[in-house]
């Protein structure tokens, strides 16, 4: 065995290199989750709400420069909901209420009654949330 002994030169240790990967993944996820939570709770300056799905604004309850409490109604939106009934697809128009997720203050309202909105496109409301809560 003249040239090289792979058992000694360490080349074969490639085999053993990923034993702790599962733990590494868990540590990585913990870091990501903590970063997202801390960012949303303490760092993000304002929250811009967009439509959760395509639809039409039915009413706007939020008023600019007022405080809102967790659970307060912000606006209502009419969306098409697909439901299966007896194996058949039915499309129904339903009005969904969007509530505040945390205490905070409404900074501005750009949504108007009757607006047609696209999912995640236009900004509807801008909120400032109480620090330490998850908006």
């Amino acid at each position: 065995m003249a040239q090289s002994d792979p058992k000694k030169c360490g080349k074969m240790t490639v085999f053993r290199s990923d034993r702790h990967e599962d733990v590494a993944a868990m540590v990585f996820v913990t870091l990501v989750v903590v970063t997202v939570l801390v960012y949303m709770a303490y760092i993000v300056p304002t929250i811009t709400l967009k439509a959760p799905s395509d639809g039409k604004i039915v009413s706007v309850a939020a008023v600019a420069d007022t405080e809102v409490k967790k659970g307060d109604l912000l606006y209502t939106i009419e969306v098409k909901e697909k439901k299966y009934k007896d194996g058949k697809l039915e499309e129904k128009l339903v009005v969904k209420e969007i509530h505040a997720k945390t205490n905070g203050k409404v900074l501005s309202v750009s949504a108007k009654e009757g607006d047609e909105v696209k999912k995640d496109k236009q900004a509807l409301l801008v909120l400032d949330h109480e620090k330490g809560t998850l908006p």
């Binding site: 074969m12 085999f15 053993r16 990923d18 034993r19 702790h20 990967e21 599962d22």
Partner: peptide
């Protein structure tokens, strides 16, 4: 020594089983 690379895409295993 290419086995580690050949099976490299497989993410489902517990790493101990891979080892």
């Amino acid at each position: 020594t290419g086995w580690s690379v050949y099976t490299g895409h497989d993410f489902l295993l517990g790493s101990h089983a891979r080892g």
